[in-house]
Simulated scan of single mutants.
Amino acid sequence: MPFLLIDFPAFNPVALQIGPFAIKWYALAYICGIVFGWLYARALLKSERLWGGPAPISLVQIDDFILWVTLGIIVGGRAGYVLFYNLPFFIDHPAAIFKLWEGGMSFHGGFLGCVVAVMWFAYRGGISILSLGDITTAVAPVGLLLGRIANFINGELWGRATDPSLPWAMIFPNDPMQLPRHPSQLYQAGLEGILLFAVLAIMIRFGALKRPGMILGAFILIYGLARIAGEHFREPDAQLGFLWGGLTMGMLLSIPMLIAGLILIVWAVRRGAPTPVQAIR
């Protein structure tokens, strides 16, 4: 029953244009995600109640860290896409690696880039790696939500074909098959953005930041679960398709996250909360 399909909105790919200067939706999502995440991080650091005393990271330090985590997201995200999703193409066209405006970023690569940024900045500043990881991942769902919404606006990374009778099935303009599909970008926005943010916020309210590594572990675990669930509705990248046993690259890259997240959570619970003296060292 095709008449039940929802027409995909005709979005302008350019979100903001001032003269010859144009910002596309995906770039705007990155900018807003980083700015809103930074503001939220500052708010969390100002609340001594959440940390059981003064936060182990100063406002000046988090301000300086924004530049490094931004570089980690961009460099790691691009490197991850090149290595995990389209390596043969980039081997043949190495100059295309630097054409970020043509798209192609990987969450898992961006996450690894953030890990490197967190470890380097924490070591350089003499602060807790786990606490910096906690505050970074506590705000990360904001960027994930905006990024998935930008995917939807761009009409990219659409879902798998579905029964036309599904009330919210859509035909995406850029889909060469013109099939009714799941709007999986919105599913992922809900899981990786709204749900993940809500769970972490509740954990923070009940004192999770007092146990270094708890929020970091919860983020890694829950994101991995959310990504695997979302991949069941998302169309695999055309150049990769389905891999072993019907798994997708997104699923395979998320499996190690489940293990790492569980290890961090168990470790944070067993280690316990540091005393206020330890927290402000």
Rank of each mutant, 00 (worst) to 15 (best):
F84L: 09
L87D: 02
P88Q: 00
F89H: 05
F90E: 04
F90V: 06
F90D: 07
D92V: 04
P94K: 03
A95M: 07
A96F: 00
I97L: 05
I97C: 03
F98K: 01
F98C: 05
L100T: 00
L100R: 00
L100V: 03
M105R: 07
M105N: 07
G109F: 01
G110Y: 02
G113E: 05
C114H: 03
V115P: 11
V116R: 07
V118L: 15
M119I: 14
A122V: 04
Y123D: 15
G126H: 07
I127T: 10
I129Y: 11
I129M: 15
L130Q: 11
G133T: 06
T136E: 09
T136Y: 06
T136V: 12
A138L: 08
A140K: 04
G143C: 07
L145K: 01
L145W: 00
L146P: 03
F152M: 11
F152C: 10
I153E: 13
N154A: 15
E156T: 13
E156Y: 14
E156F: 15
L157I: 15
W158G: 11
G159T: 08
G159K: 08
G159H: 11
R160E: 15
A161Q: 09
D163E: 10
D163T: 10
P164R: 13
S165M: 13
L166S: 14
W168H: 14
A169K: 11
I171F: 11
P173C: 10
P173E: 05
N174D: 06
M177P: 06
M177Y: 06
L179F: 10
P180C: 12
Q185S: 11
Y187D: 14
A189S: 14
A189W: 08
L196D: 01
A198V: 00
I202W: 08
M203W: 07
I204L: 07
I204G: 09
F206G: 12
G207W: 00
A208T: 00
R211A: 02
R211H: 04
P212Y: 01
P212N: 09
G213M: 03
G213V: 02
M214L: 13
I215A: 02
L216Q: 02
L216I: 04
